[in-house]
């Protein structure tokens, strides 16, 4: 079609659309759209009966973004910082603003260290981590594992093989390290 000023002709009339689709055009008027305008000053609409909230007790020192002037009055108080991952995360918050890549990359590093630390700690508990039940791979049984993946052409088939590597790779590496260490100990003991 040559490029002209004409508006492309609609495929269906408003009447046809209204007849075919429940509620078609019910919010045609922007005044009926709750997100319009984006900002609407109405502090009485929220249910808040305070001008500033009471402060939640800070039972442990709470890390915060250095872009905040002070600790906000309410915060999540779960899973406190601990171990080497805690040191990394605390440094990310204390040193770098959210504008710095180092802030986020350190936090991701902290996540990976946290996973390793937590796996190691779990081995000293009555419920150690193990990848079979925790990965949910048992859901493959009874949920059409082959048909689900081969129906049509799924784009994610190209990289699905990476997921088991992410899950099992660290376990295999750790197992290999344990075997090598044990072999070294035995070799040394035999003189």
């Amino acid at each position: 079609m040559p490029y002209t000023a004409d508006q492309p002709r609609p495929r269906e009339s408003a009447d046809d659309l209204r007849a075919r689709i429940p509620g078609w055009g019910a919010d045609l008027d922007p005044a009926d759209r709750p997100a319009v305008p984006r900002e609407r000053f109405d502090p009485g609409a929220t249910g808040a009966h305070w001008t500033f909230p009471d402060r939640q007790p800070e039972t442990q020192p709470r890390e915060r973004s250095i872009e905040h002037e002070e600790l906000p009055p309410v915060f999540g108080d779960t899973v406190h910082l601990k171990g080497l991952s805690g040191v990394i995360r605390r440094h990310a918050y204390a040193r770098y603003s959210e504008a710095r890549a180092a802030h986020w990359l350190l936090l991701i590093l902290g996540d990976r260290v946290d996973a390793i630390e937590s796996h190691l700690v779990s081995f000293a508990t009555t419920r150690p981590d193990e990848p079979i039940t925790q990965s949910g791979v048992l859901a493959e049984l009874g949920h059409r594992p082959v048909g689900s993946r081969l129906d049509g052409r799924r784009a994610d088939l190209k990289h699905m093989w990476i997921d088991p590597v992410i899950v099992a790779g660290p376990w295999l590496l750790a197992g290999g390290a344990v075997v090598l260490a044990a072999r070294a100990v035995v070799t040394r003991a035999r003189g």
């Binding site: 109405d42 500033f52 890390e63 906000p72 309410v74």
Partner: peptide
């Protein structure tokens, strides 16, 4: 929180009083 600069303007998802981390 329902009472900060952002909540008062309907931007509830942008509240400034509930997230120390960011």
């Amino acid at each position: 929180c329902g009472s900060c600069w952002f909540c008062a303007r309907g931007l509830y998802s942008n509240c400034h009083n509930v997230n120390p981390n960011a």
